[in-house]
Design a protein around this nucleic acid. Structure first.
Lengths: 107, 107
DNA sequence: TAGTTATACATAGAACTACAAGGTATTAAA
DNA sequence: TTTAATACCTTGTAGTTCTATGTATAACTA
């Protein structure tokens, strides 16, 4: 779909927080979830996602812990923090307002 | 409302293009339109808007011409170009998809 | 079993860019 | 007459992003 850089930046945080709100996940898995959920339209590069995850962790919106996949491979899992849930609610509200404004201007 | 930098960046272009799709306007006027439309939540600084308008003009999504206000004050008006309408349609579609994804993850 | 693909994480720094701050000028209002 | 509102513009920098690159293991395949 070739989303603009701005849209990718604006949507990545609420998407990640939303996914983690549904349950714990990990970097590589999040990329696949977003890919599947968008019917293949959104393909995040891993090198782009990890810095975002680190940034969100620094802000204490998410937290990480090391785990293991069924295969034995190690994975770094993330879960949502309280502050992250608050932020998610705020960003969802803002997304809705802007989305409504853009829709209204369509009619 | 204190929109995040990312959201401002991602929404400013479709908002401006949408407004110009409704009819010609000018920098200062667009700021007021957005302000009113958002119930005062969104207050763009003029120093932020003009560079965006110039950028959109460079991409030939909009074009400008000098005009006069009723008061006699000179104004630079902008109108939407064909390429700008195409881009607007695309961005609206993308906004909707992302908005839907974020909403779906809510339920 | 060697080679390739998929999985999985990480970071430095080049490249970009937004926007605050500062500038000019006119009209209206107090 | 001076302040506020209208109206436009640009530079510099402070900050950010994400490309490019690196490491490593598991799984598949030829």
């Amino acid at each position: 779909m070739g989303l603009s850089k701005d849209l990718v930046a604006a949507s990545s945080t609420p998407l990640i927080l939303s996914i983690l709100n549904k349950g714990e996940s990990y970097g590589y898995g999040i990329i696949q979830q977003v890919h599947d959920m968008s019917d293949g339209d959104i393909s995040w590069a891993d090198g782009m996602l990890y810095p975002i995850l680190h940034r969100l962790e620094k802000k204490e919106w998410i937290e990480s812990f090391w785990g293991k996949a069924e295969t034995g491979r190690k994975r770094k899992y993330y879960r949502l923090c309280k502050a992250g849930l608050d932020e998610l609610k705020l960003q969802r509200k803002q997304w809705k307002q802007l989305s409504n404004m853009i829709s209204q201007l369509e009619g």
